[in-house]
Computed example of a mutant assay.
Amino acid sequence: MAVAAPSRDTEETYKKVLAENEIPIDVEKFDGYSLCWIGPRTAKAVILFMHGGGLTDPAFDAHIQFNLNGWKVMKANSQDVSIAVLAYGIAPKTPYPVQNRQVVATIHHLLRSRPAEDITLSGDSIGGMLTLSTLLHHKHPIPTVPALTLPTLTSRFREIFIVSPGCSVITDTKSMQENLGKDWLTHDMMRKGLETLTASKEPGIEFPNPWFLSVSAEETWWKDLPVGHMTITVGGNELFRDEVLTVGERIKKYHDREVTVLCEEGGVHCGPFFALMMGATDDDKSGTKLFKQWFQDFKA
């Protein structure tokens, strides 16, 4: 099943969804990108969310609504936390890897008012890949992207929660073939996304690379990641299933904190957001339940 790209950009979609929910709108503008806040900028803890869309499409309504629903749960639990949705630049107007620069700049901005331990990174699809590439970038820098500088040598982000981290590269995994027709994502969609990124990337950038296609990173790169607990979910019917599980196992091998990897039986790419997009109001899929419980258990 194909999913049409949203007609609005991320910032416009954010404003629409928050207005419909009668929640205050707060957009923090930067050069070529912005932070769309759900909750006050001054909150003790911040969840930095990076949406999917292959770096070629903006956020869907479901991205904003799902996070807004989660924030309402945390607020009801009296947690001093906000969600900052990163409206990063979209290709081809914004070439790769400018998006990684924007993530690093955003993190440095957030670090001016809180420690790394109060910052959580989250995202789906390419947003999950941006999350993983940011962690790798700390010790294994992306060429042309400024260093990710944390306050101390022992600083760590609080945790990450990423859904279906993947990119537009068609790999030779079993799931990439056997899940064709089971997942709403298609090879044709992936090819078109990769063509756009390849044609518009900055000159001299090797592409794809280990930061874009995390399964191609050297195993030992997953050692010493500057983060606490890591949660990664993927659908059993996803094209990306096998490579996500491979990366998950490598992280489990080298990371010195708890790592949760969930493969949802029958799940599709970006299941929690796809279910909401399709109108589900009480989705009982394991990936959606885990994400919702994460919001419920979040302690700032």
Rank of each mutant, 00 (worst) to 15 (best):
M1L: 08
A4K: 15
A5S: 12
Y14Q: 07
Y14V: 12
K15A: 15
E22T: 13
I23A: 07
K29G: 00
F30K: 03
F30V: 05
D31I: 02
S34P: 00
L35D: 01
G39E: 12
K44E: 14
I47H: 08
I47C: 07
D57E: 08
D57A: 11
F60W: 13
Q65R: 15
N69P: 00
N69Y: 10
G70P: 01
G70E: 02
M74S: 03
A76I: 03
V85E: 03
A91C: 11
P92K: 07
Y96E: 02
V98N: 12
T106W: 00
I107D: 01
I107A: 03
H108Y: 04
G127Q: 06
G128Q: 08
M129S: 15
S133N: 09
T134H: 05
H138E: 10
P146C: 06
T154Y: 14
R156G: 02
I160P: 01
I160Y: 08
S164E: 09
G166M: 13
V169M: 14
I170K: 12
M190S: 14
R191T: 11
G193W: 06
A199W: 04
E218H: 01
E219G: 07
W221L: 02
F240A: 13
F240P: 10
L245D: 09
I251W: 09
D256T: 14
P272M: 04
F274V: 12
F274Q: 11
T281F: 02
D284N: 10
G287R: 07
K292R: 13
Q293L: 08
Q296L: 11
